[in-house]
Design a protein around this nucleic acid. Structure first.
Lengths: 246, 246
DNA sequence: GCCAAAACTCTTGCATGCAAGATGTATGCG
DNA sequence: CGCATACATCTTGCATGCAAGAGTTTTGGC
């Protein structure tokens, strides 16, 4: 394991937000703890199966057990951790069955978002989403995967928000957490990248045309295509050992 | 052992689960607190807008602030409470906009469940769901609304579980919480009851025929019909209680 | 040498104490 | 008489202490 605490990626993540605002010492420890822990799980810094010792986390975050415990409860509810009574919380495995289930649900959720989006979309919205599309293009040509991921998520979130359906947004955020985990676990999609960009173009076209039915269809196909790639990648990883690098 | 001679409905709710297993004193205070509080909110014992004072809850539940705090955090994540920093948690309002949003999402979620259900359903499953249907019929003839509600929820949950999609079940449980709240808030649906039972029969037929497409359609219609009734009821209640017309 | 039981330790679950922010009230000033 | 400010109180946020359950090791018996 890692006894050296000087170059571990955990420390680098912690360095991001030690005390953002010294003036506001109160009411933030819990949320920041949740955010950092969630990031560590989603990005894979904390591998599935890892036991979370409350005391260790207290030392690493330099907080007491109370916010750590609350953070663990929160992330357990989000499905990122699994908790047994009188036992440490464990980072949940992302098994192919669950990802397969996730695909079906995200497909209908984003499909519904597409249906509803056209009712409220403005020219400004379209321009903003188009901007995100071209940001993704730029990241693609520069081969910047993290930046592309970020813009991609913003692209999808923006369309979901266009539905003006608070419940839909809420559910989508919950699902997106798990999608992100799957994405980070298989850090490369070889040929899908180009296809995804073309599908984004189709989505943008349907949105510009205010064609709700077409938008829903293209989004459903796009989501299913993308996540299916992740599923095969995950299946290959779990069945055939652990592909560290390509 | 407890001098619970208080006449408040709160006390009656607490009496349901004081100490289920004396042998397992540990690891249950949190979950029971969550369950009881959730019940109180869903059933309307705690009205929307109510401030939740941690100390009061501690006294009423006879527990310390730690499990109460964790329960509040949990229910806040479920959307039943709203929390501002350094302020008491407040029972969230169920406004018509949110219920309208909820309808669209539940419709696609249960529709997807219907699509997927036929792939795994066994004769035993159909028999069990049919049993629930006839339980509902019985409750209808006896005019037992609470019992009908319970069987109705079990009916829908059972079909959702038939999807064998863990994510779908998870999301449905989250949404069902809010649906239940809306149901309890408008405690009577005049003519819908009979129609709902007829639709349940259609659902059961489609399930028996293993017709996924038809099952999905009938479930979508049934859910939309039922929840739309709740929406109009809620709208009437909010407008009648607080006349805010521009 | 092996198995079992007891004691130890480790970790979580719950209770409680303390400090900071917020609210409500009373008082002083304009 | 009204408003603003300062004080008192309340309430939450975080830290910490204590006990119980689970795992581990050691020791005793066979």
């Amino acid at each position: 394991m890692t006894e050296s605490n000087d170059t571990t990626p955990l420390a680098s993540l912690l360095a991001h937000l030690p005390t953002p605002e010294p003036g506001r010492r109160k009411g933030k420890l819990h949320s920041t703890t949740v955010a950092v822990l969630r990031n560590m799980i989603v990005t894979g810094v904390l591998a599935p199966g890892t036991r979370l010792n409350e005391r260790e986390l207290c030392e690493q975050f330099s907080v007491s057990r109370t916010p750590v415990r609350e953070a663990i409860k929160t992330l357990t509810q989000d499905g990122l951790l699994r908790a047994l009574p009188n036992y440490s919380a464990v980072v949940s495995e992302l098994d192919p069955d669950e990802l397969s289930s996730l695909i079906d649900v995200v497909v209908v959720i984003e499909g519904l978002a597409g249906e509803l989006a056209v009712a409220h979309v403005t020219d400004e919205d379209i321009a903003e989403i188009g901007l995100l599309h071209y940001q993704m293009l730029l990241h693609h040509t520069r081969d910047e995967l993290p930046g592309y991921f970020e813009a991609n998520k913003a692209f999808h979130r923006r369309i979901v928000e266009l539905s003006h359906n608070s419940i839909l947004v809420w559910v989508w955020e919950l699902l997106a957490l798990r999608v992100d985990r799957a994405r980070f676990s298989s850090n490369r999609w070889p040929t899908r990248w180009k296809a995804a960009i073309q599908e984004h173009q189709l989505i943008l076209d349907a949105l510009s045309a205010r064609d709700g039915e077409k938008l829903a269809r293209t989004m459903r196909e796009h989501v299913r295509n993308g996540l299916s790639g992740l599923l095969t990648s995950l299946k290959a990883a779990t069945e055939g050992g652990a592909p560290q690098n390509d």
